[in-house]
Amino acid sequence: MVGLGTASLPRASTGSSRYAQLFGRAGSVVKLVLPFVFVLAIWQASALAFGLSNYLYPRPALVLRTFGVLVAHGILLSYTETSMWRWFVGVGVGTAVAIPVALAFSFYRPLARMMFPLINFFTAIVELAWIPLFVLWFGYGFKVIVLSIGYVTFFPVLANTMSGIGQIPKVSVQAAQTLGANRLQVALHVLLPGSLPGTVTGVRTGAGYGFRSLIGAEMIAAQSGLGYMIFESRANQLTQRTVAGMITIGVLWLLVDRLYLRSIERATVERWGLVRKAR
């Protein structure tokens, strides 16, 4: 028994690795898709069983058809584009403001200590709580949404960039200084690249917050975009569009996070990371 077991082990493992080579990708796709098929089946069955109206509980088939309609009319694409552009600009603005602040704070520690209570307080104010005030300032639309996303991106980028800078060995800074680098040069050639892994982690976190904030802000203060679509469709009794929009939002975020943000983070951490290992 024991001999047979050990003898068969290598064969089994080569078999499974060949299976992995041939079907690994397909196998994991099936594993990934199967749960969703299951949910769709339950959804359809429960819709039939309870006989609720499409307004209260739109059927999957109807939602699928609605996807077709929304794509055919170009609504889905155009709203997705609008939303993603707002999100991109917002995350960009938040990051662009946070990095110089983080550099300044790391250079002048007393400044950082001085500013932290104020920054902590602003972090505590939910970004969406600012929206009514932003609306008073700018009316509905682009500026309000970008500000709200930029606001919520700023704090994690600041915190993570600073902790990234904190992980740079003093020796690196001293080496540059010994070679005659001034403060600006140290900032540009040592601190900035050294802080990148932290910054990227912060951007990924901030981008996640920003995405939620995008949807919320679009429901409150926009006339276009995915958040507007899911909210307005409800008022027009087109719940199937709301559900289609929700699915789009979920898929969109998973794609952006898994395909772009995660791989950028991994690449940066591996290229510039000093202490941490890529997850």
Binding site: M219, I230, D257
Partner: peptide, 9 residues
């Protein structure tokens, strides 16, 4: 991934 807020409508 479906932001909690997206469930509002």
């Amino acid at each position: 991934a479906i932001a909690g807020i997206a469930w509002i409508p």
